[in-house]
Design a protein around this nucleic acid. Structure first.
Length: 292
DNA sequence: ATCCAGGATGTAT
DNA sequence: ATACATCATGGA
């Protein structure tokens, strides 16, 4: 086992592990007490979380100004990438427009960062997210990993990789429905097969501008404008993407009715101007704030 | 029981 | 382009 710690005091804007990995951006981190996304009375902040990527297990917790980690490999570069520890969060926060709702949301979770999740698990997660509650989306991804991923032993516990596109494409619709995916089962199967078969991926998407990329992602089954925005924001680092989900639409109706332009595309443009130079960050703070 | 959840799809207009 | 019904499932 390799271990290490990242000093958080040096990070501009700080960091908060719990809100970052339990704010509905990523569904591949598991609390070691198996209570991820459950409402708890605990103060939070010192839980161990675990994730698996490319066959490597990483456990991390935040304690005394450190992000401590234990892993099958040197986890520091992965943590920096996945948790966007390279973002200047101070600059992001300073740029939040002086608006009551936005400032309340920003102040509610100091140190919360966007994530930079791997493309395929992110795509599958948000295909599953349609008309689902956050905790259930997380449960669905855990079910997929347990049933179709590869088990890895680490420090006396069994972890699972997220299934490869081929592994998910080989599942039957009935099997996926048994995991609680409901009508999203064929979407997951079909889109996994598409990606395994060479459909558009991160490298291609990086060459497109934001709205082109959003449109291109809709080629996947079960991916509309909103899910595409989630993948662009939480995986591809398009910080201008603003997923218009039920919570944000509610906020628009209540606080920014002038931004409701009828269509998704036009409302998106209007709200991106309202949210300032880092609209994706602001969206995620508002979402987490309203949902809690 | 009834309603709702990080919506997308197919169909009709 | 826009409006509408329909799609599973679990939790409150």
């Amino acid at each position: 086992m390799e271990t290490g710690a990242i000093a958080l005091a040096d990070l501009p804007g700080g960091f908060d592990l719990q809100s970052t990995v339990e704010s509905g951006q990523t569904f591949r981190w598991q609390r070691e007490d198996d209570r991820t996304y459950e409402r708890t009375n605990a103060h939070g902040g010192t839980h161990w979380y675990a994730t698996v990527h490319e066959g490597e297990v990483i456990r991390a917790r935040q304690c005394d100004g450190l992000l401590e980690w234990e892993s099958t490999t040197d986890a520091e570069p992965m943590l920096v990438e996945w948790l966007r520890l390279d973002d200047d969060l101070t600059a992001v926060m300073d740029a939040v427009p002086p608006d009551p709702l936005l400032e309340r949301a920003r102040a509610a979770y100091p140190g919360m960062r966007l994530v930079r999740d791997p493309f395929f698990p992110c795509l599958m997660s948000f295909i599953c997210s349609a008309q689902m509650r956050v905790r259930r989306i997380h449960r669905m991804q855990s079910n997929l990993a347990r049933e179709y991923g590869e088990p890895i032993e680490f420090d006396g516990r069994t972890y699972h990789t997220f299934p490869t596109p081929e592994q998910l494409a080989s599942a039957t619709e009935a099997e996926l429905r048994d995991l609680g995916l409901g009508y999203r089962a064929p979407y997951v199967r079909e889109s996994a097969a598409m990606y395994a078969d060479g459909a558009i991926g991160p490298a291609d998407l990086r060459e497109l501008d934001y709205e082109e990329a959003r449109e291109a992602l809709r080629a996947y089954v079960g991916v509309g404008e909103k899910v595409a925005d989630c993948v662009l924001l939480f995986s591809l680092g398009r910080l201008d993407a603003v997923p218009l989900d039920t919570w944000i639409r509610r906020a628009i109706a209540e606080h920014y009715p002038h931004c409701d332009r009828g269509s998704y595309g036009e409302t998106s443009r209007a709200i991106r101007e309202e949210f300032g130079p880092y609209p994706g960050y602001v969206q995620t703070y508002v979402f987490h704030y309203l949902r809690e």
